[in-house]
């Protein structure tokens, strides 16, 4: 299989000046006439005629300009034939690759992307993903699009970040407030060549709508209300209460629900909400009684129809709004209460027999009315008459048989109580039950009359009937009816029937039996122990079991062991323990910002500070640059976050892999770490020098080692060191490890060799193996402490195969660089390119790639890490002023 193209031509150019691009030759030409022929796409297949061959010399020429986007490569099938047209050789394939030029700009799939995000969303929440394509060669810088937010409207403060590569637009912080800005508009630029200055760019617009959440608490327009309402009246619009809520109008977050907290125990009031206006109308749905309650205090609360957002849930406190209600008195006059009254009439009752009275009640006083006069309204058969002032009802005459028949045993008439002053009339109903036995016929009438007058039991029956009628007329009627019955029966002797006497005897018997029953009661005693009360022992414990019976008594020590987990006093630190698995930068309005990702909430201020205050790496104390949060975490956990390491290195490598535009050498990661059993916690420091206007005054505060490395990264001249060893460069990695004058950081296992001069060695130790953490990096150098220093640059590109060394210079700095577990599929091409350390000292860079699992440049041979514990990939010594000598050496 051909693994690379034999020849190449550049698209969009006249390549004919490079003709012949290839030539074929057969040894058969030595002794016979050979004719060379070619075929394939671009020759005898469309597009025709791109390649032609000189049949005699075998020279292949390209004739036209080619377009990689049309035909990315050609396969020219080459033949050598004799004069008879017979093949003299097996067919050869000449693969011609069309080199890509950046002739296609990025194209966004939409001119305007629409997105929406809830306000108060956490920082780093994904809002939308933009999409752009570039027709240039895939996996090439010409098609590598870098996205960048150019502008934001409103431009008050940047609220969004975009991932340079994935085009994911995320929230920068959790301060999105719909009530402040309900819509954001971003202008995003996508530039190929990874955003390089020579790239082609396209722009698109992002319209981001901020969705409302219920993060505003509603309140009533006024702090209190005062109203008055007439008694005995309903009111459908007693009070209008306007609710103020800043959330989105007409949404459930805005619509209010007013509820009674107290004061409406009688259910007199109701509140109806108008969802269009958010105004609540207080209604009276049950009449109030001035005589019962002259004032009352309503206490109202308000909430939203929707639940409150979790961000303000804790802030919501039920706040009562007072509504003072004054009940106005209304002259009500008199009414019959109850509205009807029942009497019983027998044939014994004669003329002017007084049945009772029916008196109206004055509602304004609650007493019998004194201002009314009574007149009969409906009075069937003219049976009764009422006293005009007294309200006493009398039989006008003895009821005759005819009247009884006309009335069919029942009389129902009305009484009017007329208040002349108020010009009001109220009506009461009189019901009279005519005792039927009295008027059956003339003969029986006499007999019944006799029996009625003599039989006490009959009177008792009358009482019962009356009582039943009263009950049917209502509760109050029952009372009245009972009174009436009592009046009637009071004329007779009260005595009990046999059943009543029997009940009384039974009652006494039961009372007498109670003490006897109690004596035999078990009262929870143990079954079978006899049915009697147990005496309570004299000791206080009584029947309580001792500890030894129920189990061991908990000792004091045990109790003290049961305690809640201790919470560190500073909870903020816990919050800051976030996983910095994703690191990406975003150039925003001229400022570089770096988001650590991982869902943490980072304010814009912190981001700015993170960039501007990158400085002294103090162990666990100082915020050092963009890795501030990470440092805290690392310190807390006592070890390096290998996920972060992996992410950082890989993303850096990837980001700088294909860049070739001029860029200052300005990125430096300094990490020192001492780990292992018994060692103190390590630390991570980072200096990320980005931008042209670099304020490097803080470098003065760095320690010696870090300042040295920072200077190297910045391309500054560093102090020369005496030449440590004439055998430089080292033939093996052992030569660069233990150096005299080394200042190992921490108390790791450093082995210092005396034969080296002052050379800066930054060291690290192995990492303890933990689940989910990268395996320890085998350290082929053999010494205990190593510091990782990573430096990438695109200034002064050196080919990966170049090995530069000049041992004439004495100053040497060992820089060890590691790439840990690159992301699968990441193209590491170019990541091993070294910076041009202008006029600098000699620098040895040791780079190692552990378990790559991805495509690597073919020039790099990576031993299988499973077969050897240590893998050293490249080691280069760079001396800018000397010639380029040496080559890539790989140490298994």
């Amino acid at each position: 299989e051909w693994i690379k193209f034999a020849a190449a031509c550049r698209e969009g150019e006249d390549n004919s000046k490079r003709n012949p691009i290839a030539k074929i030759h057969s040894d058969c030409a030595a002794n016979q006439q050979v004719t060379y022929r070619i075929s394939g796409v671009g020759i005898d297949q469309p597009p025709y005629g791109i390649f032609v061959i000189n049949q005699k010399t075998g020279e292949i020429n390209i004739t036209t300009i080619v377009d990689r986007e049309v035909t990315p490569f050609f396969i020219i099938y080459c033949r050598a034939v004799n004069s008879l047209g017979q093949d003299l050789e097996r067919i050869l394939e000449l693969r011609v690759r069309v080199l890509d030029i950046n002739d296609n700009p990025p194209v966004f799939s939409m001119s305007t992307f629409l997105g929406q995000i809830e306000e108060n969303s956490n920082a780093n929440t994904l809002v939308m993903i933009l999409n752009a394509t570039d027709a240039d060669e895939p996996n090439n810088l010409n098609s590598k699009i870098a996205f960048k937010i150019l502008r934001q409207e409103p431009s008050a403060s940047p609220m969004f970040i975009i991932n340079r590569y994935t085009a994911e637009v995320r929230t920068m912080n959790n301060f999105l407030d719909r009530e402040q800005y309900g819509q954001y508009s971003l202008v995003v630029r996508g530039s190929d060549r990874d955003g390089g200055a020579d790239g082609m760019a396209a722009e698109c617009e992002c319209s981001i709508k901020i969705l409302d959440v219920n993060d505003n608490i509603p309140y009533m327009e006024q702090p209190s209300y005062s109203i008055s309402v007439e008694e005995n009246a309903l009111n459908s619009n007693l009070l209008q209460i306007r609710i103020i809520d800043l959330d989105e109008e007409f949404s459930a977050n805005w619509m209010a629900v007013i509820f009674f907290i107290s004061g409406n125990e009688g259910n007199w009031f109701d509140i109806e909400m108008n969802e269009r206006t958010n105004v609540g109308t207080l209604k009276v749905i049950k009449p109030l009684d001035y005589e019962a309650m002259k004032n009352l205090q309503l206490s109202l609360g308000v909430r939203n129809k929707a639940e409150f957002h979790q961000s303000i849930m804790s802030q919501y406190k039920l706040r009562a709004t007072a509504v003072s209600v004054t009940v106005l008195n209304v002259v009500e006059g008199s009414v019959f209460r109850p509205g009807s009254k029942t009497f019983v009439v027998t044939s014994e009752m004669g003329q002017n027999y007084q049945l009772g009275d029916f008196i109206a009640t004055d509602l304004d006083t609650g007493l019998p009315s004194t201002t009314v006069r009574y007149v009969m309204g409906s009075n069937p058969a003219g049976l009764i008459a009422i006293g005009s002032k007294t309200g006493i009802i009398n039989l006008r005459n003895k009821v005759t048989v005819q009247q009884y028949k006309i009335l069919r045993g029942k009389y129902q008439g009305t009484i009017l109580a007329i208040d002349d002053a108020l010009q009001r009339t109220c009506t009461g109903t009189i019901i009279i039950k005519l005792e039927s036995s009295s008027w059956k016929d003339d003969d029986s009438s006499n007999k019944n009359n006799t029996s009625t007058s003599t039989n006490g039991l009959t009177s008792s029956d009358v009482t019962t009937d009356t009582y039943k009628n009263s009950v049917s007329a209502g509760t109050n009627n029952a009372h009245v009816g009972h009174t009436t019955a009592f009046q009637i029966t009071s004329k007779n002797n009260v005595h009990f029937g046999p059943a009543g006497i029997g009940l009384l005897i039974m009652g006494f018997l039961v009372l007498g039996l109670v003490p006897f029953l109690l004596m035999f009661c078990d009262c929870g005693g143990v079954p079978g122990c006899g049915a009697r009360f147990k005496p309570v022992p004299e000791c206080l414990d009584g029947a309580i079991h001792s500890w030894t019976v129920e189990g061991a008594q908990p000792k004091l020590a045990d109790l003290t062991n049961i305690c809640a987990p201790q919470i560190p006093p500073n909870n903020a630190d816990i919050i800051e323990c976030i996983d910095n698995s994703g690191v990406y930068t975003n150039e925003y309005r001229g400022r570089k910002m770096q988001d650590l990702g991982g869902g943490e909430r980072t304010t814009a201020l912190e981001l700015v500070d993170a960039v501007k205050t990158s400085g002294t790496p103090k162990i666990c104390q100082e915020n050092s640059g963009t890795l501030r949060r990470s440092s805290i975490r690392e310190c807390r956990e006592g070890g390096l976050n290998m996920n972060f390491m992996e992410s950082y290195f890989c993303q850096k490598a990837y980001a700088y892999a294909d860049e070739d535009e001029a860029r200052p050498s300005n990125d430096c990661l300094l990490i020192y770490d001492i780990e292992g059993v018994g060692s103190p916690a390590g630390s991570v420091g980072c200096c990320s020098f980005i931008g042209e206007d670099l304020d490097d005054s803080y470098l003065d505060t760095l320690g010696t080692k870090f300042k040295k490395l920072a200077d190297i990264s910045l391309g500054k001249e560093v102090e020369p060191y005496p030449d440590p060893d004439p055998s430089w460069p080292p033939d093996s990695t052992e030569l660069i490890c233990p150096l005299q004058g080394t200042e190992p950081i921490g108390s790791g296992h450093s082995h210092i060799s005396p034969h080296f001069g002052t050379t800066t060695i930054i060291s690290e130790s192995n990492y303890p193996s933990e689940p989910g953490v990268q395996h320890p990096i085998p350290d082929p150098l053999g010494y205990g402490n190593v510091t990782l220093t990573e430096s990438y640059t695109t200034l002064g590109t050196l080919k990966p195969s170049v090995h530069v060394h000049d041992n004439r210079h004495a100053s040497n700095v060992v820089v060890t660089e590691r790439v840990v577990g690159p992301i699968s599929g990441a193209n590491l091409h170019g990541m091993l390119e070294m910076p041009d350390l202008r006029d600098g000292s000699n620098v040895i860079v040791t780079e190692r790639v552990i378990t790559p699992g991805s495509s690597l440049p073919s020039t790099l041979t990576i031993p299988d890490p499973r077969e050897s514990s240590n893998v050293v990939v490249t080691e280069r010594v760079i001396q800018p002023t000397s010639g380029l000598v040496g080559n890539l050496s790989v140490h298994p």
Binding site: E1, W2, A7, A8, R18, A22, E89, L94
Partner: peptide, 26 residues
Amino acid sequence: EFQIQVRDYNTKNGTIKWHSVRRQKR
């Protein structure tokens, strides 16, 4: 032997340099 030679464009002094292309195993 039937061989293909391709031009090396990277020569700095403008001289034409030819490389024989050989089949390789991946």
